[in-house]
Structures are given as C-alpha cells and as structure tokens.
Simulated scan of single mutants.
Amino acid sequence: MQDQLMNAWNKMIGKLGEWLDAIVINLPNIIIAILVFIIVIILSRYTSKIMLKLLQKTKLQHSMKRVIAKISSMLIIALGMFLILGILNLSKALNTILAGAGVLGLAVGLALQGALSNTYSGIILSYIKTLKFGDWIKSNDYEGEVMDINLRAVTIKQADNNLVYIPNKLVLENPIVNYSTTSQSRVILDCGVGYSSDLKFVEKITREAITTNFKAVEKTGDIIFLYKEFGGSSINFELRFWIDSTSAIEVARAKSKAIVCIKQAFDNNDINIPFPIRTLDFPKNFMTPLNNQNDS
C-alpha cells in the first residue's frame, strides 16, 4: 500500500514538473496573450464609442445605433479570443470549440426562443421610423411615452410616471397607436342640455367658450359640434377640437379646462345642464279607490 502511495506521489510530482516546464516554456506566449486580452478589451470599448460617433451622422434611431455599437464591440472580443487561442497554441481546442458551436447554438436557440424572438423584434423596432424616443404610444393596453427600445423590451412611461416594460415581441405583433405622428391631439367631450334650451344658442355659446380659451382653436376655428341623441333627461351633444400637444396628460388637462369653460358659459347664459331624473306619471283617478275605501 505504501509503495502504491509513493508511486502515485511520484507520478503527481512528475506531472506537476511537466506542467511547470510547459508554463516556463510558454511563459512568453502567456504574457503576450494577457497583453492581447487587455488590448482587446480596451479596443472593444473604443470601437463601441467610435461606432456611436460615426452613426450619429446617419438617420438610424438611437436604439439601433446602440445595437450596432454593441455588436461591433462583441465582434472585436470574439476575434481577440481566437487570436489568444492561436498564441497559446491551442488550435486543437479552437477546432473543438468551433465543432461544438453548432450543437451548442442549436441547444441555446431552443432554450432561448423567447429571448431571441424579443432580440429580433427589438432590431426590427429599431428600424421603424414612426416609433422613436419621446413618442406617446398605446400598445397592449398600455399608454405612455417611449423612454427606451432595447433588445429585450420597449419601456414606456405612463401619465402617472410609472414605467412599463413591454416585451418587443408583443409590441411588434400587436397594433400600435402612435399619438405623436402629428403635432396635435383631438379632445372629445360629451355633455347635455335641458329640453327647454335653445339648441342653436347652446352651440354658439359652446363654440365661443372653446375658441376664446384655446389658442390652437382660435387660430383654426376647427370645432366639431354634433347633437347626438334625445337622452332620458337632456339633449346630448359631442364636442371635438384640437390642441397643440400629443401628450395624453395634456389632453386630459384640456378636457378638464373645457368642462370648466363650458359650465361657466352656460351659467352666465342660464343654460341648464340637467342631472338624470325620473318622472312618475299617475292616472287622474289613481287615488280615488283609496279615498272611497277610507270614507267607508
């Protein structure tokens, strides 16, 4: 038993000696490989910055510029790793890596279908010129300002400042409403007036209230006023006008301001905005049987 242990010990010492000799022999190559690795890391960072500067002159979206810069940086690192393996005389290991890359790529592709789909969708979204940072959009029942488009998700900031991260695949596969494609947004307001009101006078007062309080309407005079229906307690109408903003919060503020202006104008001209009421109509002789019963 002792002889076997000594034999194993001697073999281990011999093996360590061989490794030490190999390290000493390849020490210059190791030093060069370390220097090449450091240079590659530095070069990849500068490549990313240089690519961003060069792409600033193009019409690509900012998100796409960052994607291209990251890919160029990763390519520099990949080339550097192949160069380091060659310096260390690990060509056989390089061949093994290349041979296994196909199988590994297939396995990774199957395991990361969702992530790869979002990555591909992110690249496609970066090419869409009608979707860019600062746009106010609605997608997948979420509405807000586009803050970021990366390889995983589209980040939007809602009117209450909450951030929503929508996977790129869902954004690409579902309809997108972009409120920022024009410089204006339309405000839609519903209201009603009493049946005794002069409808032409109501329309005139409403138009004047909006025109005098909104600059965009004052310039164009573009107001749509439509009576919609005979309601249960009022004649209802719909009012539409434009404002110089594409933000949903500004649309909400404009609607609030319009309600105040219209209410004040109606009060000044004795125009009634009725609340829902129910009128009970009894027959003329409805109480007669009851009165006769009390008399008896």
Rank of each mutant, 00 (worst) to 15 (best):
Q158F: 06
L151P: 11
S117H: 09
S117C: 09
P167C: 11
F133R: 03
Y142M: 14
G122V: 01
K132E: 03
V164A: 15
I149P: 01
N150D: 10
N140H: 09
D135L: 01
L116T: 15
K129M: 04
A115Q: 09
S121P: 09
N150S: 11
D141Y: 04
E143H: 06
L163Q: 14
G144C: 13
A159S: 11
S121T: 06
T130F: 10
Y165P: 08
V164H: 10
T119F: 08
L125E: 00
I123L: 12
K138A: 10
Y142N: 13
V164C: 09
K132N: 12
V164R: 07
F133W: 07
I166R: 11
D141E: 11
E145N: 12
P167F: 15
L163S: 15
I123Q: 03
I149Q: 01
T119K: 06
E143R: 07
K138F: 03
M147I: 09
D148Y: 08
S117V: 12
S121I: 06
Y120A: 02
Y127L: 09
W136N: 10
L151G: 06
T155D: 05
N161Q: 12
M147L: 06
D148W: 05
Y120H: 06
V164G: 08
K157T: 13
L125C: 01
A153P: 00
V164I: 10
W136F: 09
V154F: 05
D135Q: 01
E145F: 02
A115T: 07
N150T: 10
I124P: 08
Y165V: 13
